[in-house]
């Protein structure tokens, strides 16, 4: 199975789209080698702006370019894009509803060894709260490419959450991303696992193991976290006895919270939220870190079995 980091898929697709959409400009804050906007920069140097280590200026400048008709892709590490620059993004991009796409990499724990200062476990929560901002978390390279293509055509602010880590493909080449729609990756009948992002492949592996042990398990890729596929959430809640959300994010405010919000108002049912349990990350290899927080296949399986009393 081909493994590709979503940041790589983003960078390559963006460079391709640059040919089709002359109005695309790309901004980075001294991390173009890491966010992979370097591919676009090499191909279209006139349309690439490295703003240096200045994330607020990055957002403000993006707003000005968008106000003058540009389709602006902005990249840096997720922690700085959503943390340091949250308020300029909220005030100058989201509020005037400008056409700026924040495509931030090294999200979640994927920056591994750098530790908690560079990891991002709160970004979905704080961006999702801003009115009219789309929040997308691709699960593999195929989905990333489709989301970037969607964003090039779409108008308005968006947050695309990218990972540094290489992940196996979980979608077929024929997969078609649709905004506001979840996608069933594995269909079962007793347990439903909602997930998104890099760990989707780990969740799938855990689901397969659970099914092998006689528990029929569904896996739903909820990569469109905002807008959320509420209909699918309710349909899954009706069909399954047990519901879980699994995410590489704090259990406060992320995918699990978004699903819980839908359930509590439309189909009250217990949802077990697996993720980072209200704590900061720490240094270590990415695999060691997600193992530690129970988000590798083994950890996910252990949590599921504990809840299911297996």
């Amino acid at each position: 199975m081909t493994e590709i980091a979503t940041r790589d898929a983003y960078g390559k697709k963006l460079a391709t789209l640059g040919e089709i959409y002359p109005e695309i400009v790309v901004l980075d804050a001294d991390l173009s080698g890491s966010t992979k906007t370097e591919f676009f920069a090499k191909k279209f140097p006139q349309r690439f702006f490295n703003m240096g280590v200045a994330e607020q200026d990055l957002m403000g400048t993006a707003a000005g370019l968008a106000a003058c008709g540009k389709t602006v892709f902005v990249s840096t590490f997720a922690i700085f894009a959503t943390g340091r620059a949250w308020e300029p993004f909220r005030q100058s991009i989201a509020y005037p509803h400008l056409n700026v796409k924040i495509c931030a990499s090294h999200a979640g724990l994927s920056v591994g060894e750098d530790g908690a200062s560079h990891q991002t476990v709160e970004d979905i929560a704080i961006i999702r709260a801003i009115p009219f901002v789309k929040v997308l978390v691709p699960s593999d390279g195929i989905e990333t490419e489709q989301m970037v293509e969607f964003l090039a055509k779409d108008s308005g602010p968006c947050y695309l959450r990218l990972s540094r880590a290489k992940a196996p493909l979980v979608h077929e080449a024929s997969y078609q991303f649709q905004i506001g729609r979840g996608h069933i990756l594995k269909e079962g009948s007793t347990v439903c696992l909602f997930t998104a992002g890099f760990i989707t492949s780990q969740v799938l592996a855990a689901a397969l193991e659970l099914s092998n042990q006689g528990v029929s398990t569904t896996v739903v890729n909820m990569s469109s976290i905002k807008p959320l596929d509420s209909k699918l959430v309710v349909a899954m809640a009706e069909k399954h006895q047990y519901l879980f959300s699994i995410e590489e994010h704090s259990i406060i405010g992320g995918l699990g919270s978004a699903i819980a919000e839908t359930l509590v108002s439309s189909y009250p049912k217990k949802l077990v939220r697996l993720g980072i349990n209200d704590e900061f990350g720490q240094s270590g290899s990415y695999q060691a870190v997600i193992d530690h927080y129970g988000l590798s296949t083994r950890g996910i399986l252990e949590s599921l079995k504990k809840e299911l009393k297996l």
């Binding site: 200026d57 400048t61 000005g64 106000a67």
Partner: peptide, 20 residues
């Protein structure tokens, strides 16, 4: 031409317009 109010942000916004 722009939503403003949070101080200090218009400088970068105006630069972006000038760059466009």
């Amino acid at each position: 031409e722009m939503s403003t109010g949070s101080l200090g942000q218009g400088m970068s916004i105006s630069n972006g317009m000038a760059m466009a």
